[in-house]
Write a protein that binds this DNA or RNA. Structure first.
Length: 611
DNA sequence: GAGTTTGAAACT
DNA sequence: CAGTTTCAAACTC
């Protein structure tokens, strides 16, 4: 516990917290000499997503506990690997203890992509050699603050050009203290800054800059002068678009930004010189008198294009041009409202959904709808089984006469008895989530009743029904007509051994057909919606827009869809009370109310159009 | 490579 | 939480 001379680096006013740090610090200040070719480190913190997506891997991930987690990790690292020029990841992750140079712990980013080499210097770009760990150049922070990229990235400095570095094994106590202090200030300090970044997609498309809309900076940037088109901007550096989290000014880093497009245009994407030139031009234009400055429209556009599933290609109206369209869209998508205002603080005016990619079908399918779909399919299956069995029984009875009929009858009784005694067990076995309170549905299933319950179900159908039952149970959807439960019961008592294969086949056929129909309808609806969205973007006919505002579809189309859907599923098989209502939300059975569900704003503030 | 600019982090 | 300071990377020359 000797004091390191590192303390001398700190101004008196800030030394306080750091005194404690240095108290335990080992003395050895190690002006580290870069041995390797100056390899660049990737953007600090920005890549933590690779360690587990949600960032559970960074030192900050586990928050207060994370500090504790780091310690054994560090030890394990020390045990596993002598300090070499390699950098080590200190994150508590499977990968963390692996001695590695950076590239090996990073996602396979494209070497040429900005994402792959954030904070690279120009020289690195020139040599084109895939990045190694970048060395920091910290002078005053001892590499124990987030200023230090190494520290922020959760790695030891190794081969850096820093002065008085304490971010190394020798100074682990100090480092640990620093980590704790950092976490105390901000429990998320070591968490990934970029959230929800599907690496695959990013890797595939980042060059054209139309991908990372799926990711966004957790905190957002606060750029003022760079237009978010320089690497000063963390979003830009991470090759993602600015989001509603950002509080930047004069942002040009949004989808559809011409300035941004210029940066990623064609083969120039890899040309940093060009890129920076374009950025400079863009910034100049933005800050200068070009009229770009303080364009509040910019940010709003981000979400629009995202929502409509279009990328840059969709005609983006610059600035004032897009205002009208924005207003229209804003009616449909409150979160995308284009309320004029300063770019700063735009996050408040722009909805949180701006950068959340949503499939066109996302609005069509609700979780509840899926449940209903499953329910209906189950019902169809049961109905089919019942019909088949009835037919079979009828023929058998005709052929075999009274005696066999009696036998069948006694069998039925046995089955019934079994049901009385063992059904609940079976039901529990099958529907493991079984809520006791829900089991009453067995006998009360008036629609298909005991007949259905005695019919065989195919294995696939049974699985489906069990899942369905599980889902419905877990969703706490109490339904007296919970046929899933019912069918689970029956499934365990397949009465006839071999002849059931045909029934299974028939059931599956029917179920699959119905499911196919549903999917087809869904596809139709999705296409319909796509057309609507496209037409809206183009400022299409106001009637359609009006309809969409409420429902996402025109009422006429809705009716048509419902009519057709009704034909797709045999109503007779459906217990009307609940299942039809629910199912109608997606694919089937029209009740008189074509819009059975109340539209509700989703998490992003969108109003989800319901079918 | 020195100096400047920039924005995040740290601090008040 | 806003304003200021510190810091180091990015950038310019």
């Amino acid at each position: 516990m000797e004091n390191s001379e590192g303390g001398d680096f700190f101004p008196p006013n800030k030394a306080q917290s750091e005194v404690a740090v240095s108290a335990d610090a080992a003395t050895t200040v190690q002006p580290q000499v870069a041995v390797d070719i100056p390899a660049k480190k990737l953007a600090r913190q920005l890549d933590f997503t690779v360690f587990g997506g949600s960032g559970g891997q960074s030192p900050g991930t586990a928050m207060p506990e994370q500090t504790k987690q780091i310690q054994p990790l560090v030890k394990s690292i020390q045990l596993q690997r002598p300090q070499t020029q390699q950098h080590m990841v200190l994150m508590p992750t499977k990968q963390t203890a692996v001695p590695t140079t950076h590239p090996s712990i990073r996602p396979p980013l494209k070497p040429d992509s900005p994402r792959a080499r954030p904070r690279q210097s120009a020289s690195e770009v020139k040599d084109g050699t895939p990045k190694k760990q970048k060395q920091c150049n910290c002078k005053h922070s001892r590499c124990l603050k987030l200023y230090c990229e190494c520290f922020a990235s959760g790695i030891y400095c190794d081969g850096c050009n820093c002065n008085n570095c304490h971010n190394n094994v020798e100074n682990e106590p100090a480092r640990r203290e620093a980590v704790e202090a950092t976490l105390e200030r901000n429990p998320h300090a070591f968490r990934p800054k970029i959230a929800s970044s599907p690496h695959g997609a990013r890797d595939n498309k980042e060059e054209i800059g139309d991908v990372l809309v799926l990711a966004k900076h957790n905190k957002g940037c606060h750029c003022k002068k760079s237009g978010c088109l320089k690497k000063y901007c963390e979003c830009f550096q991470a090759n993602i678009l600015c989001s509603e989290n950002c509080k930047c000014m004069d942002c040009k880093n949004f989808e559809g930004s011409e300035e941004r497009q210029a940066l990623f245009h064609g083969d120039h994407a890899n040309n940093m010189a060009y890129l920076q030139q374009a950025a400079n031009a863009a910034i100049t234009g933005a800050i200068g008198s070009s009229g770009y400055g303080l364009s509040p429209v910019n940010k709003k556009r981000k979400g629009q294009e995202l929502f409509f599933g279009s990328s840059v290609k969709e005609p983006v109206h610059r600035h004032g041009q897009s205002q009208q369209g924005n207003h229209i869209k804003a009616s449909v998508l409150p979160s995308l409202s284009s309320v004029p205002g300063p770019c700063v603080g735009n996050a408040a005016t722009v909805g949180p959904s701006k950068f959340t990619y949503r499939s066109l079908l996302a609005d069509l399918i609700q979780p509840q709808d899926l449940k209903e779909l499953c329910s209906v399919l189950v019902l169809h299956s049961g109905e089919a089984a019942k019909m088949l069995a009835d037919e079979k029984d009828a023929s058998i009875k005709q052929a075999e006469g009274q005696r066999e009929a009696s036998l069948a009858s006694s069998t039925q009784e046995r089955v019934q008895n079994q049901k009385d005694s063992g059904t609940e067990k079976d039901m529990l076995d099958c529907c493991s989530s079984g809520d006791q309170g829900e089991k009453i549905s067995v006998e009360e299933s008036s629609l298909d009743g005991a007949d259905v319950s005695k019919r065989p179900m195919s294995p696939g159908t049974l699985a489906l029904m069990c899942d369905e039952s599980h889902t419905m149970f877990s969703a706490a959807v109490a339904s007296p007509n919970d046929l899933a439960t019912l069918n689970c019961n029956t499934s365990s008592q397949l009465p006839h051994g071999q002849g059931m294969t045909e029934t299974y086949a028939e059931q599956e056929r029917i179920v699959l057909m119905k499911f196919r129909d549903c999917l087809n309808r869904l596809v139709d609806l999705g296409q319909l919606k796509e057309r609507k969205c496209s037409s809206m973007i183009r400022g299409a006919d106001p009637v359609d827009q009006k309809d969409m505002i409420g429902n996402g579809f025109t009422t006429t189309e809705m009716r048509n869809q419902h009519d057709s859907l009704n034909n797709g599923v045999a109503k007779s098989a459906l217990p009307q009370p609940r299942t039809t209502q629910l199912f109608s939300a997606v694919v089937t059975t029209a009740n008189n109310n074509p819009f059975p569900k109340v539209h509700r704003p989703d998490e992003n503030g969108d109003v989800k159009p319901k079918i």
